[in-house]
Design a protein around this nucleic acid. Structure first.
Lengths: 135, 135
DNA sequence: CCTAAAAAGATAGAAAATGTCTTTTTAGGG
DNA sequence: CCCTAAAAAGACATTTTCTATCTTTTTAGG
């Protein structure tokens, strides 16, 4: 339960790798894919999502590629994960309270709220800078 | 991401309902299913898993049905969820470290460990007694 | 223009989720 | 010893999600 998909894992690998590269140079998608061992076409989709969220900047055409959209200390793991997996929702009723007919009397609801907070907190507390750090 | 499946939700509904019934009486599966609005055949599978884990006791034949396997204050939400969804594993590498080739140097690994702890803790802190309480 | 690279969209196979149906086992009661 | 009630077990079917891949289009440099 609660398992990250391949997509999420690839996304993290890819952007952490990018965060470990010289910050002012564009990286070829094909190079990133090779370095982190992810199918290039799949990683392309992932980086397109990153680009839409502003986590990376993309440049098309000759000499194009990708750069981080912000300094790595300003990007959290939570943002990365949610960019490709969608919001962290341990149970339907947490996302759309209307779904939870029982929400008035449901004793489980607050537990899921709590879980959501804990997970988001843990992921929001880590930045790409920390993740990319060697040592 | 990290969403409980229908199965997990049905499981909780079913066993919480059972925890709210007189503790020494067997409940018909069909009654539980009707009360919590879950397909009876699906709930049957779920309760079979509960039974294997000892969370409920089952009785076959005429007059048969289900009872809680332990007092409701001795059964946690974590047990219920893990009984039907499997262990709480935010990422592959947390479950089987061997899967994580990078585990030696991976800075993400400890984050997933932390997430796992937080989630398990939150769910382990709630019992069926609390969930079944009216009001 | 020609080439390099990302963006966008269509497609496709595999796996998981969500049930359903049938048959089997167990137990009680006449 | 049968008959019926109920859960257990296993096979099957449908839908959705995941995990990609392939093709075409757009953008930009030289």
């Amino acid at each position: 339960m609660m398992e990250l998909t391949r997509k999420g894992e690839y996304a993290i690998r890819g952007i952490v790798y990018l965060a470990g590269r010289p910050i002012d140079k564009v990286c070829l998608l094909s190079d990133i894919a090779a370095a982190v061992d992810v199918p290039p076409t799949f990683l392309a989709k992932i980086f397109q999502q990153f680009s839409k969220m502003g986590l990376v900047k993309s440049f098309r055409g000759t000499g194009g590629g990708f750069m981080l959209g912000r300094p790595p200390e300003k990007i959290t793991l939570l943002e990365v994960v949610e960019a490709v997996e969608g919001p962290i929702i341990p149970n339907r009723c947490v996302g759309t309270p209307a779904d939870c007919e029982r929400s008035g009397t449901c004793n489980v609801h607050p537990v899921w709220m709590r879980v959501q907070e804990e997970v988001r907190g843990a992921l929001a507390g880590v930045t790409l800078k920390e993740l990319a750090a060697e040592e």
